[in-house]
Amino acid sequence: MPSAESHQPLRAHKRARPGPLRLLGWLFGIAVLAGAVFCAGFVWFVARLPSAEMVFTEKADGIVVLTGGASRIEDAIDLLARRRGQRLLISGVNPMTSEREIARLRPEHEKIIACCVDLDRTAINTITNATETRRWVKDRGFKSLIVVTSSYHMPRAMAELSHQLPETQLIEFPVISEQLKAGWAHGPTLRLLFTEYVKYVAAVARIQVPLFDRFFA
């Protein structure tokens, strides 16, 4: 007759294998925790977005504006005209857009636009905005940079630019869109912010994992 000791390893082995219901419970708990963290991150993301235009007194070697909505280019030209930077890079300009069309946005600053604005027609997204900005900054020898983009796009833009320019001082100039001025807690604006948050999380994750980042270098 086998001894009780001979059955002990078998019983221990069975206890070490969780049943399918317990495994599903663990997976459900992990999913709930991940969802809670993700939602808390979204609340943090929205809470840190400015809701009003800022009083800006900073200066830098250069200014970069990432093309898009919310009068970003006009605000960047105004900063250049106020001598907040030596030159302005407009990154992500449509290849069909001419210098004359840019000048029409601020005709009162036509001369400074003609002398001190560079157009980047290569960038097609925030990643390439950052790589083209890096080339421009390195070519100019700039050590500091004012970054102009919409407030909701700023976290992702700063993540990408910080990754490409770790030794450059980056100064935020967030442009407040009319949607955010009206409040974020209604359908279209909420969808816009949530989509941007997802893109921001994906960008940070990609930057933190070198294997992923190589595909976008």
Results as ranks from 00 to 15, higher is better:
residue 14 K to S: 11
residue 163 H to A: 15
residue 191 R to A: 12
residue 173 F to W: 06
residue 150 S to I: 04
residue 178 E to M: 12
residue 75 D to I: 04
residue 106 R to S: 05
residue 87 R to M: 12
residue 161 L to P: 01
residue 203 A to R: 00
residue 19 G to W: 05
residue 116 C to G: 05
residue 185 A to Q: 14
residue 202 A to V: 11
residue 154 M to W: 03
residue 195 T to K: 13
residue 56 F to G: 03
residue 209 V to I: 15
residue 144 S to T: 08
residue 91 S to C: 13
residue 148 V to W: 02
residue 174 P to G: 05
residue 11 R to C: 12
residue 145 L to I: 04
residue 79 L to P: 00
residue 128 T to E: 12
residue 156 R to C: 05
residue 39 C to S: 11
residue 33 L to W: 08
residue 165 L to W: 10
residue 16 A to E: 12
residue 206 R to W: 08
residue 209 V to N: 12
residue 110 E to P: 00
residue 164 Q to W: 09
residue 201 V to L: 14
residue 176 I to F: 02
residue 126 T to N: 06
residue 25 G to I: 08
residue 93 V to Q: 00
residue 139 D to W: 06
residue 112 I to H: 00
residue 57 T to E: 10
residue 18 P to I: 12
residue 40 A to Q: 11
residue 130 A to K: 01
residue 200 Y to E: 07
residue 164 Q to H: 14
residue 217 A to I: 09
residue 193 L to P: 03
residue 165 L to Q: 09
residue 143 K to I: 05
residue 97 T to D: 07
residue 112 I to A: 01
residue 52 A to C: 06
residue 85 G to T: 03
residue 35 G to Q: 07
residue 207 I to V: 11
residue 30 I to S: 10
residue 96 M to G: 14
residue 27 L to K: 06
residue 183 G to E: 11
residue 26 W to T: 09
residue 119 L to Y: 01
residue 127 I to F: 10
residue 132 E to H: 10
residue 64 V to Q: 00
residue 44 W to M: 09
residue 140 R to W: 08
residue 91 S to V: 07
residue 10 L to C: 10
residue 174 P to C: 06
residue 12 A to W: 12
residue 22 R to S: 11
residue 14 K to G: 12
residue 22 R to W: 12
residue 38 F to C: 09
residue 211 L to M: 11
residue 167 E to R: 14
residue 106 R to H: 07
residue 89 L to M: 11
residue 212 F to Q: 10
residue 181 K to D: 07
residue 109 H to V: 04
residue 133 T to L: 04
residue 92 G to A: 08
residue 201 V to C: 13
residue 64 V to H: 02
residue 108 E to M: 04
residue 202 A to G: 10
residue 49 L to G: 03
residue 18 P to A: 13
residue 55 V to F: 08
residue 67 T to D: 02
residue 100 R to T: 15
residue 93 V to T: 03
residue 21 L to P: 03
residue 152 Y to A: 04
residue 114 A to D: 12
residue 150 S to W: 00
residue 135 R to V: 09
residue 102 I to M: 04
residue 52 A to H: 10
residue 6 S to I: 15
residue 114 A to K: 15
residue 204 V to H: 06
residue 27 L to T: 09
residue 10 L to R: 15
residue 80 L to S: 00
